[in-house]
Design a protein around this nucleic acid. Structure first.
Lengths: 134, 134
DNA sequence: ATCGTTGCAAAATATTTGCAGTTGA
DNA sequence: TCAACTGCAAATATTTTGCAACGAT
């Protein structure tokens, strides 16, 4: 059951997927990224985008977002610890700059017997755009 | 774009789905619940389980869990605010009793222009069972 | 030359939906 | 009564995978 770590190669496809992910602030799905990337590399396939997002995530260059499970997966090219806000009306996800030092302090400790190495937080409600347009 | 709220009925199927969800501590998927429920109601269909989980979630009787998006959706019948821990090895999700008052204080306020009404937190790492079995 | 990666297409998995009949209030 | 709900099955949506060719190191 041990996962073998192989020597990753820096392919053009992987570079472009990461570039487009970093250039996006909309927390895109694999399909969103595919549509963006295919404009630059018409021959790339959706399967390759999925495979590369998985690899980028494993290597810490991308984050698969926490949010409601069971939806299309969303990714974030911003890897520093930060909170997310998801609007219940428009479903858009925003990065927040607000810090919660208490959470950072949990990392590296044991909580109720479990070793914590990372965390993700999603605040929900009505976003600025949806709230002001009422 | 306004969602019409209709008068929900208390069907036997909905009752049983909620009962089994509350009796489970494994944060089951719709498929998990279907397999449990079908033992009591052999004629129930998977579509009905999906529809009822959606309705229970809307009415606040169940929560669709935060976790990595893009996985099979998981539900929780425990609706009081609490943190979750997901193990990176076995993927199991545990409820935590640890409180973060700071997060509770954000509810009802506006953060960076967004009105916060709820939050979900997932801590990740190695759970007690996986950590002790190394 | 090696072996990780790719494109393609099919398969697998997960969720939603149309419809006709059923049922709770 | 009658609109919400159900079972069924088909349709969609999302993700993974087998395979032969390709390409980074």
């Amino acid at each position: 059951m041990v996962k073998i770590q192989c020597q990753r190669r820096n392919t053009r496809q992987r570079q472009v997927v990461l570039e487009e992910l970093r250039a996006s602030f909309s927390h895109p799905t694999a399909g969103d990224l595919y549509r963006t990337v295919v404009a630059r590399m018409p021959q790339i396939s959706l399967g390759t985008v999925y495979r590369n997002l998985e690899i980028l995530q494993e290597s810490g260059q991308a984050i698969r977002l926490a949010g409601c499970t069971g939806q299309e997966a969303r990714y974030d090219g911003r890897t520093d610890p930060h909170l997310h806000f998801q609007c219940c009306k428009c479903a858009r996800i925003s990065d927040l700059d607000t810090m919660l030092p208490l959470l950072d302090e949990l990392v590296g400790t044991t909580v109720e017997g479990h070793e914590v190495t990372a965390y993700q937080v999603v605040l929900r409600g009505t976003c600025r755009a949806c709230g002001s347009s009422r």
